[in-house]
Amino acid sequence: MNIFRFLGDMTHLISILILLLKIYATKSCSGISLKTQELYALVFLTRYLDLFTDFISVYNTVMKLVFIASSLAIVWCMRNHPLVRRSYDKQLDTFRHYFLLLASFLLALLLHEKFAFQEVLWAFSIYLEAVAILPQLVLLQRSGNVDNLTGQYVFFLGAYRALYIFNWIYRYFIDPHFTRWIACVSGLVQTALYADFFYYYFISWKNNAKLQLPA
């Protein structure tokens, strides 16, 4: 494992910890899209079916279990916790996420490494992860004001994707057998979706001002 991949995993972990901290400390999930969180839970559940079939390392197994457990915990809190669920911006979280599910599934049926149950679901999880942030970005844009922890959450999530691209560039030169086109192309699309957010994030950081997205 190279440094970019490791830092990518760590920023991913940090983003989830920030989200858990926000929900735990403020008992609020305002600004957070339940649709995006549900899509992420589904991404992890479909991708990590290999927990039952392949053992890669203790690190790998532990991280997979952490991602599954934390995503399910977040969804549970947003749906069921008596205080947290009241702060959910349901009227702003209106992205038609079923289209993302359908499109990802159809694409996975067409484009996969092998036509097998686990492989098609793996491709599905990759495609779905690439677009799962869209309901979240739309919610932020609609609410305009982004609270500090929510802004940091999305920033670290974007940083994780950017670091994975550096990881692939590194692997491409070091390990010529590494050719995961589905993951790499989807990863590029996914990272591009953050470009607009990053732009406004850095402007607010430079001006030392609160993060605001244009309507």
Binding site: D9, E113, Y164, H177, T179, A183
Partner: peptide, 10 residues
């Protein structure tokens, strides 16, 4: 075959 390499990324 390359597709049999386990998927080591998260």
């Amino acid at each position: 075959a390359k597709e049999d390499v386990p998927k080591d990324e998260l």
